[in-house]
Structures are given as C-alpha cells and as structure tokens.
Design a protein around this nucleic acid. Sequence first.
DNA 1: GACCAATTGAACTGTTTCGTACATTTAACA
DNA 2: TGTTAAATGTACGAAACAGTTCAATTGGTC
Lengths: 229, 229
Amino acid sequence: MLGSRKTNEMPASPARPAGTRKSASWTQDPDGVRRNILAVARDEFVENGLSGARVDEIAAKTSTSKRMIYYYFGDKEGLYRAVLEEAYARIRNFERSLDLAGLPPREAIVSLTGFTFDYHADNPDFVRLVMVENIHHARHLQSSPKIADLNLSVIDMIGEVYERGLREGVFREGLDPIDIHLTISALSFYNVSNRASIQQVFGHDMGAPEARERRRLSAIETVLRMLCR
Amino acid sequence: MLGSRKTNEMPASPARPAGTRKSASWTQDPDGVRRNILAVARDEFVENGLSGARVDEIAAKTSTSKRMIYYYFGDKEGLYRAVLEEAYARIRNFERSLDLAGLPPREAIVSLTGFTFDYHADNPDFVRLVMVENIHHARHLQSSPKIADLNLSVIDMIGEVYERGLREGVFREGLDPIDIHLTISALSFYNVSNRASIQQVFGHDMGAPEARERRRLSAIETVLRMLCR
DNA sequence: GACCAATTGAACTGTTTCGTACATTTAACA
DNA sequence: TGTTAAATGTACGAAACAGTTCAATTGGTC
C-alpha cells in the first residue's frame, strides 16, 4: 500500500525546479520557504511528537536546509510553536465559515456536529497535534499569543443557537453552551485520537469508511437527543 | 502549591531505610525493585512521553540504579511496554469488579458510565499513557501479547445489558454495543486528555471539582438519552 | 563459613542531536 | 556594475543519551 503517508512536498519556490534541490540559481521566496518548512515540520511533529521529531530529519525533507529552519524559527520549539499556531488558525477559519444563524436550531446543531466531526476525521494531523500539545500540558499554547480570543466564538455560536432553540421550545432548559461544545468535540475527537488503540484492543477500525459514517450519524443523533426535550 | 506532582516513591525494599538510598546492606526484593522502577517509569513516560522520557532521569528517581532497569527490562522500550501492560491490566481489573448483571438496565448504564467517568478522572496517568501510545500508533500494544482478549469483556457486558433493556422495552432498537462503549469512553476520556488545551483556549478548568461533577452528570444523562426510547 | 548465582555500581562508549560559526552566494536596487 | 543586506551551505562543537563493560558485592543455602 503506497502513499498512506504522503509527505507535504510543496516546492519552496516555483523557480527552483523539482528534483533539482539546492540548484545554483533561485528566486527569493522567503514565504514559500517558510511554508515548505512548516509543512514538513508539521508532518514530523505529528508523526513523532515534539521530543520525537528530529530537526535534521525535518531539514532533510525540506527543499532547503537546517540553516534556514534556525534562520526563520529560532529553534526547535519556535518551529513547533509556529506549526501549532498555524493549525489553530486553520480550524478557526473553518469555524468562521459556518453560518448557523440562518438555520433553524435543530438543523444548526446537526450541521455543526456534522462539520465538526468531519473536520476532525479529515484532519487527523490536527487531532494528533492537539494530543501532543496536551501531553506537554498545553505549555506552548500558553506562551503563544493570539490563541485565546479566537475559539470563544464557537461557544458564542452555540449559545446563540441554543437560546433560539429554547425560545422555539425545541431544546430543553438548563444546558451550558460549553458543555454542549465539549460533548460535540469529545465525540468528534476521540474516534481519531484513539483510533490506533481501539483498533488494537477491539479489532475495530474507526477509520474505515462505513465505521466512520455510522459513528458520524451516531454522534449527531446523540447530540440531538442531548439537546431536545 | 506543593505536591501537585507527587512522585510514586515506594521504597524498593522495607529493609532499605528511606533516605538511605543504596546503603551497604539490603534485602533481596526483586519484585519490590521491579515495582519501584515501574512506578517511577510510569511517572516519567506519562509526563514526557516515550521519546521525551530519559532513562537516566528514571534511574535517578528510583531507589536503585540504571543497571537494574536494563537488568529487568532489557531496554527503554521494554520498560515502556511493561508500564503499558500494567496500566491495561489495572483497568481490566477495575472493569471486572463491576457487576451490572444484577442491576436493571437503566441503572446498569448509569453505573457503568459513572464508574468509567470516575476511573478516567481519577487516573489521568492512564489516560495520558493511552495518548502517548496512540501517538505511536499503538505499536507497543500490538507487539504486546495478552492485551487483545481482555477488553472484549466490556463489550459483552454492554451487550448483555442492552439486550435486557431491549426486552424490557426501556431501550430503543438498532444500537451497537461497540458504539455505546465508544460514546461512554469518549465522554470520559476527552475531559482528561484535553484538559490542558481546553483550559488554555476556553479558560475552563475541567479538573475543578464542580466542573468535573457537572460534566459527570452530563455524561450520564447523555448516554441515557442516547439509549432510551 | 564457603560457594554460587543473583544483584549491583561506576565509569565508559559510541552515537545522536540540537544548535552555531563562518564563509559564501544571490537578489535587489542605486 | 557596484554595494548591501538578505539568504544559504558546510562543517563542526558540545552536550545529551541509550546502552554496555567489567568487576564486585551480597544473600541464600548447604
């Protein structure tokens, strides 16, 4: 089975022909180099964790050199922090793209749960990065600015939908938006984060398309039942 | 705040007075030494992951020496595997202690969910170890014998209770015992595994007693609603 | 108290790994 | 075309680290 682990190649600059790494002539493309390093680094951190990842290995897989990693990111932790920030920026973007205000409460919850589930299933790298970060007690999230403010928007979104559902009489009272979010997240996260151990212990592959689809429907149903009267 | 990270000291042998590590005289207590090493190693692996943990550091924190680690466990991976096996053996024991057959279906599910939730909350080390193992694609669970058979019992237990609930008309049809288990696990695991990142992003501490209790009730309620007509 | 096997200590080895020094090349622009 | 600052390559240093060597000590047993 080939290509199960496809490395994010992404040439640093279009002017540097693929296969001719480190050729004599190149176009200045600091942003491309940065992105290239970040993509490779994410793969490595996701695969081996923070301590497990090797700077030399990352360097070897980029179109540039180890020198550039330190040039742009300072040190290994700086690189890791950049990877982490990018990952969180992405999911924020995703969440912003949701427009629940236009949907009836029930449909809004179905949509939110489905999208959240899919985002996790489609982006195991994000899930694994969050796992790695939690092993490190989220120390790097802490030292990183601009992460705190963003994700509160999800809670606000849920709060708005929940209020609406309450007024329309479809949702039951006494629920906490954070609790709702945690439930949706837990049901979306766990299948991906614990896929390997579940596979080993139960011989059940959560990644298989049918299993995933069944689990998706189950998650949506569960969240609905949690909310509705 | 002292003692938030209490190292499992556990002297290797009673005859070796605490504080007098490596004294001239000792009692033969291979099992005690083994347990001491395992306890310290678990702390280190749980705290730093497999790659992050340092054999020298583990050795320094035991009442014995690095030599003994290699003497008993072969190498770092062997030690890690032993820690992992012990952790799974423990939760198996816990699960065996449950007697759901004597309870009416609803109460059985309430009990199972509550106990599972509590076990995870009370044993963050187990949760973190499973996270570490999943980062490594559960490679060590695979190479370890005797892990597969044990946990199927939970599924059987759930299956039995579910069947009973169906016959008595309290549960709805069409559910899969594995799916039920995954839901209970997800709701129990996530709060612990992602506690640090949730704390950072939402400023909400899942570990605080009130938050934990609220979440516990929510999990039970959610599982009940998932199952009942 | 003598013997043997289990158990232990300390120093050491070879490798891995992060990070840097230093020289050099190149793009951009006057 | 000459100047300058940004960008890059190579080779190296120093520390960290897993695992080993070799000798020695000790407990149990007869």
